[in-house]
Computed example of a mutant assay.
Amino acid sequence: MILTRRTFSALLSMTGLVALAGLSPLRLIGSAFAQSQSAADVAKPSPLGDMALGPENASVTIVEYASMTCPHCAAFTTEVFPKLKAAYIDTGKVRFIFREFPLDLVAAAGSMMARCIAKNDAQKYFAVVDVLFKQQTDWVVKNPIEPLKRIGKQAGLSDEAFNACLKDQAILDGIKATQDHATDKLKVNSTPSFFVNGTLVKGETSFEGFQKLIDPLLKA
Rank of each mutant, 00 (worst) to 15 (best):
F81H: 12
Y65V: 08
L84W: 01
G22H: 03
F33H: 14
T69Q: 09
K44D: 00
A21C: 06
L53D: 05
G30P: 02
E64V: 13
M51Q: 14
S36T: 15
A40W: 01
F33S: 14
F33A: 14
I62G: 00
L20W: 10
F81A: 08
P71W: 07
H72Q: 06
F81V: 03
L28A: 14
A34V: 10
H72T: 10
V60E: 06
A34D: 13
S46F: 05
M68N: 08
I62S: 02
C73M: 07
V80P: 00
A58H: 04
F33D: 13
F33Q: 12
V63M: 07
S31T: 13
N57G: 02
L53I: 10
A39G: 07
C73I: 08
S36C: 03
C73S: 15
G30M: 07
F81L: 14
T69L: 10
K83P: 00
L26A: 01
A75N: 09
C70F: 06
P25V: 07
V42D: 08
L28N: 14
S59I: 05
A52S: 15
Y65M: 08
C70G: 09
S46W: 03
P71K: 09
P71C: 09
S31H: 13
G49I: 13
A74G: 14
P55F: 12
K44N: 09
S46R: 01
K85Y: 10
T61Q: 11
V18D: 07
V42Y: 06
A19K: 14
L48D: 05
P55Q: 11
S38W: 05
P82F: 07
L84A: 02
E56Q: 15
Q35F: 04
C70W: 07
F76N: 00
L20Y: 13
L84D: 01
G22C: 03
L53H: 02
D41C: 03
E79C: 03
S24Q: 03
A52T: 14
G49P: 12
A74C: 04
L20G: 00
L53Y: 06
S46G: 06
V80I: 15
G49Q: 11
T77Q: 13
S46V: 06
K85A: 06
M68H: 04
S59L: 12
Q35A: 15
P55K: 09
E56A: 15
A32G: 00
G30Y: 03
Q37S: 14
I29L: 10
P25L: 09
E64R: 08
E64W: 02
